[in-house]
């Protein structure tokens, strides 16, 4: 027995993770039979793995009942908010929730504009035993300060917070994800509300709590789900923002392995990303005529 370094080693003929991540079709085409027989699993697979901007769950992989008999247009699914997004049917602690595709722009029935999501921050991360770079979560209060402050600087006043949208007749649903839902901020003058999707909204908008010691949060996907729900039921314009969830970078090579300091830095990055989301929204709203 001795130590014998290997001079050469051929690259194995099975792909590295990033190659499959860049070609999510591989995941949608090769689904275990037991999963395909299970609507809940297929729905979750579509929402969490294949959803978002790169949605392209092929009909061959998803049984018609789950795919909603809605065949993707040729070439669709390549960009966010385009012709086809998979239905999202997700089991939460409160039961099964269905999220249908939301479209950006004027909704004919209500003439309400649903802003697209403005992507700043990856809005996803894990906590738990193997999560070595856990994210920081932004509180609703901290987010409200940023959003309201930034809007105010652009001349937009939000006169109300925590508004019961159903009581105020801004919404026509008090069921499902909108049960006991409060809009984070509202401008009576502009008939414009905003919702910040935080960890507190995780289960409401489709997040699934893990039973293992590792929990993954994807608040960006939850925000996309929120768009679809609010788009269907709201009678006022709504902007949706999400927690950027910056990871606490305790990586090698940093002199300081001090958690509080690294966490502070991450919070600053999250605040910067949320500010950028709000600024993008303001620019979009001006272009769309929501704000003059």
């Amino acid at each position: 027995m001795r130590i014998r370094p290997a001079r050469k080693y051929p690259n194995p003929a099975y792909p590295a993770y990033r190659l499959v991540a860049d070609n999510p079709d591989v995941l949608s085409r090769h689904v275990p039979a037991a999963w395909l027989r299970n609507e809940i699993v297929v729905g979750a697979l579509a929402a969490f793995t294949l959803g978002g901007c790169r949605s392209n769950v092929t009909v061959e992989a998803i049984p018609p009942a789950t795919a909603g008999q809605q065949k993707p247009d040729a070439g669709a699914g390549g960009s966010c908010g385009e012709a086809w997004t998979p239905e999202r049917r997700i089991e939460t602690f409160g039961g099964t929730v269905e999220f249908k595709p939301a479209k950006t722009g004027v909704r004919k029935k209500t003439a309400v504009k649903i802003a697209p999501l403005f992507i700043h921050g990856k809005g996803a991360g894990s906590t738990g035993c193997v999560a070595i770079a856990p994210p920081v979560f932004m509180s609703e209060d901290a987010a409200r300060d940023i959003v309201i402050g930034e809007m105010k600087a652009a001349g937009i006043d939000f006169d109300r917070t925590d508004v019961d949208a159903v009581d105020e007749k801004m919404s026509d649903s008090a069921e499902g994800p909108l049960k006991d839902f409060l809009l984070d901020g509202y401008s009576t003058k502009l008939r414009l509300g905003f919702e910040f999707v935080s960890m507190e909204d995780f289960a409401r908008f489709g997040g699934v709590h893990s039973r293992s010691t590792v929990q993954r949060y994807d608040l960006k996907t939850c925000a996309e789900n929120a768009r679809s729900v609010l788009g269907d039921h709201f009678k006022v314009n709504v902007a949706i923002f999400y927690d950027p969830m910056t990871n606490v970078d305790m990586g090698r090579g940093r002199k300081e392995r001090n958690y509080p300091a690294a966490e502070k830095e991450a919070r600053l990055d999250s605040a910067t990303d949320l500010t950028a989301q709000v600024r993008d929204f303001i620019a979009w709203a001006k272009r769309e005529g929501v704000l003059k």
Binding site: V20, L27, A34, N38, L45, T49, S210, R216
Partner: peptide
């Protein structure tokens, strides 16, 4: 094999199943 090694949410899907 593909789901277990290339799908980031495999543990969650497996648990749901």
């Amino acid at each position: 094999f593909i789901q277990k090694h290339y799908n980031a949410v495999y543990p969650l899907l497996s648990l749901l199943e």
